[in-house]
Design a protein around this nucleic acid. Structure first.
Length: 295
DNA sequence: ACTCTGGCTCAAGACGCA
DNA sequence: TTGAGCCAGAGT
DNA sequence: TGCGTCC
């Protein structure tokens, strides 16, 4: 859903709103992390060869636990206090998208079956990735693991991105770490990318500050949200969207003044906007670090 | 000629021992 | 799934 | 740095 070239758009139009940071500069900070996204990555990549994954004696997948445990240890060693945020039920607006994913996975399964039958290793490799799905069980496994080692877990009432942006706005965490640029659209004041990248890959932590982005791009937050919706849902690029917003101020005004772009039928931009502006989040008490449970 | 978009591809975690 | 990089084609 | 292992 995110804008394709948002990073590049920011590099070009708001260069000082982002800066390279060292991991050490977050020592002692509480940082929110998107758990579901991480679990997905672990399932795709950890110990997977063809259809093989890491499993326990009962044959249950443990790739996500392996990945989650080591990553959390790395964060703790760096003096970072992670707060993992789990997805809740998705908003209605995303149902369509989810249906698409479902059929893609189904198609992936079929192709995988063909690949297995014909013993085509490359295809098995490719299609097995497409069938990956984070289940409730995977989520529960990870919550349990995190609670056992005393790392706080937050269960979002809906989208995790929205929830941790809200935590950050409320000052309950210092920053939000994700690879998903939607975090910016949800208005997380400080947004970190590549927090987990090993130093060997020489990708520095990139820190984005929303207030600076808005100032430098000469937008208010509503306009920034419109910009993201405009170029996310819809077939124009970020640069054009930015120009249009500067010119007309809002999606409504753009639609009134411009006819040359093809408008999707029943384009639900105002629903999308509401999702970003007033997302469903919970404001429970500050997530506390629990004492590690002996086991 | 230049810019933008869109379609394609790719890689993706973390450890430790050579 | 996600972003990024590269190439081709459309629009200016 | 590259590659096998983690379960």
């Amino acid at each position: 859903m995110g804008i394709k070239g948002l990073t590049k758009l920011l590099v070009d139009n708001a260069p000082t709103a982002m800066k390279e940071q060292k991991l050490e500069s977050y020592f002692g900070r509480r940082i929110a992390v998107d758990a579901s996204m991480s679990i997905y990555q672990f399932l795709v990549v950890v110990g997977r060869k063809g259809t093989q994954m890491l499993i326990n004696e009962a044959g249950e997948v443990t790739s996500h636990l392996q990945g989650m445990l080591y990553r959390t240890i790395r964060l703790l060693e760096a003096g970072i206090k992670p707060v993992y945020v789990f997805d809740g039920p998705p908003p209605d607006l995303k149902k369509q998208e989810l249906a698409k994913r479902f059929s893609k996975r189904a198609a992936g399964s079929e192709e995988l079956a063909v690949a297995i039958a014909s013993r085509n290793k490359e295809d098995i490799e490719k299609f097995s990735k497409r069938t990956v799905k984070v289940t409730q069980q995977h989520n529960e496994d990870c919550k349990r693991l995190l609670r056992l080692i005393g790392v706080p877990v937050v269960e979002a009432p809906s989208e995790a991105e929205a929830q941790f942006a809200a935590l950050c706005k409320a000052g309950k965490v210092y920053a939000v770490a994700s690879e998903d640029m939607d975090s910016l659209t949800f208005g997380a004041p400080i947004f970190l990318r590549h927090l987990m990248d090993p130093s060997s890959r020489k990708v520095p932590v990139m820190e984005f500050e929303i207030p600076k982005i808005l100032e430098e791009m000469n937008l208010d937050m509503d306009q920034f949200i419109d910009l993201c919706i405009l170029s996310g849902d819809y077939c124009i690029g970020g640069l054009t969207a930015l120009k249009l917003i500067h010119q007309h101020g809002s999606i409504e005004n753009i639609l009134e003044n411009i006819n040359k772009y093809q408008i999707p039928d029943n384009w639900p931009y105002s629903e999308a906007r509401l999702l970003f502006k007033e997302p469903i989040v919970s404001m429970e008490e500050k997530p506390e670090i629990n004492t590690p449970n002996e086991e």
